[in-house]
Nucleic acid binder design. Sequence first.
DNA 1: GTTGAGCGTT
Length: 551
Amino acid sequence: MDFVQVSEEEGDEPIELPAEEDGTLLLSTLQAQFPGSCGLKYRNLDTKAVRGVRSNEGRLFPPSVDSGWGEYLYFCVFPKENKRKSDDNLENSTAKTKRIETRLRCTDLIVLGLPWKTTEESLREYFETYGEVLMAQIKKDTKSGQSKGFGFVRFGSYDAQMRVLSNRHLIDGRWCEVKVPNSKVNLFFPLNSEPTNPFHFQGMGHQVPCKVFVGRCTEDINSDDLREYFSKFGEVTDVFIPRPFRAFSFVTFLDPDVAQSLCGEDHIIKGVSVHVSNAAPKAEQNRNQQVQSYNYNSANSFGMHSYHPQGNHMNPGRNGHHRGNNQHSAHGGESSIIANNHSNIGTAGYGMGGNNYGGNSGGGYHNNSSNHSSGGNANRQDGGTQYNSRQANFHGMNQPHNGNVGGSNGWMNRGHLDMPNLQALGINSQGSSSSNQGQNMSNQSMLNLNSLPINPALVAAALNQWSLVGNQLQNQNQDQQGGNFLSWMAQNSGHANNFGGRKGSNNPNNPGANGMNKADNSGCNDPQNGNTGWSNQSSGSQNSVEKSNFL
DNA sequence: GTTGAGCGTT
């Protein structure tokens, strides 16, 4: 395979981009590394002049038919309107940082659901725990000066922004939603989702989808084919082919820009023209698929018991969760994560067949933003893939503990926000000594999922998602066992955030059952549950919760 | 004075 050395600007360190078999370089390949670029040029060594590279129909052609791309160093051409004056004005801005800024640019974030009493000062104060706050404003009624209950905030670093977007926020005693403005539907957590659906819990997802839909697949295109083919555009973190065969698949990239750059394109894989498009569901399918992904997620992430919905929003007709169990076995991993392997929670990742859910005391959710693959490669096994991509940026997160939402006044009454109602999930925390909680957690466990009066898959799913939070905590050294959801809960019960743990809990369904035990590992297969294959699992790949919401 | 889905007097 021929490689073309390309840099953003002349003199920069080049990146080697793979050329196609016919010797051309796909514009999409170029754009995957240099978003916004539209062509290439190089300096002719004889004439010293800069020459443009021929471009046609999304392909860039080598200067020479005989010697191909040669040893030239190519640099990018950007559309004129793309000449970023603002960037050019930045002092000490190297080409590299310019590119990073282009890709990882901060935007204003809207903060919805603010308490009336929140001031710009307190808003700023809250968000400063995440990083430098460049702007914090509350929108107010011009006459009365009364807050309208929302505001905007802007961070100095993209990293801080991502951390904020990936977190939930209790501001002055009220749970608030932070989003990119005008992003009507958060692809990860649709607005009209079921209020108790933990998968639609706000803020855990990316703002930019990493997953693409690959249509017109044939049955002989397997996940390896897809992975191999699409890897040339960027690191592929997941490939999912629905079974039974449905002529499409999903490919998830580490870099959402890569995913985006491919959308709308046709690609030839094994002689078949496939079409890449956004993985977002079609509008009319939205609702059903939300339910679907909800169920499937439960299954994908954990091998849970079979269960029947009891007053929750699960659809008994869709049973992806059972499939999930099969998949775990197929992965060679634990058939039941929660039940079978408590000690893994938050300390050694979720340990399923090569899938790293970002546990790992060392890596956690990535302490190094430049290394998207930190976070516990030690757990990685054949066929496994890293849990997260962009979320590798979430290093050293802060989890502010301010305000107090006690017991029944916590999640339950917040129908408009998609916060997980942990009480409803049956998650109890106990005691008030946070220092002991972590210990209990890991060594004894406090939660008997199968004894809970609720859907254990929901709990599992919540736990899965909250592994993010757990790792944040790890970074904060709050608890020696700290990197996990349960210890977080435990801490909260004794501190500020009480989400319906024992303290203040008045949920009769949760009398404080906390004996934890149970290592039931039934990765249960329910023969009556055919599945439609919308789940997120795929051979040799991990299943992430938030990503399934793209399905 | 109350309220709780939304999108910013730039």
